[in-house]
Simulated assay, not measured.
Amino acid sequence: PVCAYNGMTYASPCLAGCQTSSGTGRTTVFHNCTCISDSVMKATNMSAVLGQCSRKGECDSKFKIYMALSVVGSFLSACGGTPGYIVLLRSIQPDLKSLALGMQTLIVRTLGGIPPPIYFGALIDRTCLKWGTKQCGGHGACRIYDANAFRITFLGLITGLYFLTNILGGILYFIIVKRQKKLALRNQENENGLEGNEVSNGHASINIAKKSEDPSKESTI
């Protein structure tokens, strides 16, 4: 890539329309770049140098904000690991716990390790601006990406997956809460039924005792 004096990075001197050059190696300067004058900002100096243009000053502050949000998001995401294992172990029978942990690990490794490189790579390739070519004429690696499209695609996909995960987790939470409420009501009804039977049995024994005592008293009298 080359950096024009209007602050725009071009993938190659040819795409910038440069016609002549001076110097060698890293000090090469390209002159008479006609495409530079056709850009949004009219450039009086139609030359370019090797390398990408420097980023704006606000890039450093945005990078710090991004890293801070990434650390906080990773911490919050990791906090759900232990509760997830606890819910898993308490939701199954004791003799199936080892099998459940093995199946969970298999599913996580399968769904989280094999497909992501495929669809992440396919979406990221859509943000490429200039593809390289191999010596035999085949499709090579990407030379330069559209930074804004790359950022939106990469972070948007991660955010979408997190959002979908939270929705599924919320649905699972409401299902578990609803089931626990039903079990609590059922247990309460069973306890109330047992207490009612015990009370009725107690009254019956008292009545029997009274009836058995009355004849004895009458006989003594």
Rank of each mutant, 00 (worst) to 15 (best):
R109D: 13
K42H: 12
S47M: 11
Y10P: 01
L89Y: 09
T105W: 02
G17I: 01
T105H: 09
P115H: 00
L106K: 06
S39Y: 00
L185G: 02
V87E: 07
I158A: 11
E218M: 10
G137N: 00
K62P: 01
T9F: 01
V40N: 12
A43N: 14
Y85V: 14
P215V: 11
G132N: 12
L76N: 05
N201S: 13
R90I: 02
G25Y: 01
N190Q: 15
L76E: 03
G81L: 12
P115F: 02
I107Y: 08
L157F: 07
G121P: 04
R90G: 11
Y66K: 14
T82K: 10
Y162M: 12
S22Y: 08
T153N: 09
G138P: 03
T27Q: 11
G102Y: 00
I167N: 04
L185H: 03
K182I: 06
P94W: 00
I86N: 08
I118L: 15
C59P: 04
K62Q: 10
F63S: 13
T105A: 15
T153P: 08
Q188D: 12
L157A: 09
P13M: 05
N148G: 00
K130M: 13
K217Q: 13
G113R: 06
N6T: 02
C79Y: 05
S74K: 07
T133H: 12
R179V: 03
I175Y: 07
V199M: 11
T165Q: 10
L164N: 06
L69W: 02
A204Y: 06
T159G: 10
S98A: 14
I65P: 01
C142I: 02
N197Q: 15
M103L: 15
C79E: 06
F30K: 05
G113W: 04
C136W: 09
V40R: 10
C14F: 12
P13S: 01
G170I: 04
P94T: 00
G137M: 02
L99Y: 07
Y145I: 11
T82Y: 05
L155E: 06
S70D: 11
E218Y: 15
T127Q: 01
I65N: 07
L50I: 14
S22R: 14
G102F: 05
F154H: 09
Q52I: 10
F150H: 08
R179W: 04
V49K: 09
S212M: 14
L50R: 14
E191H: 09
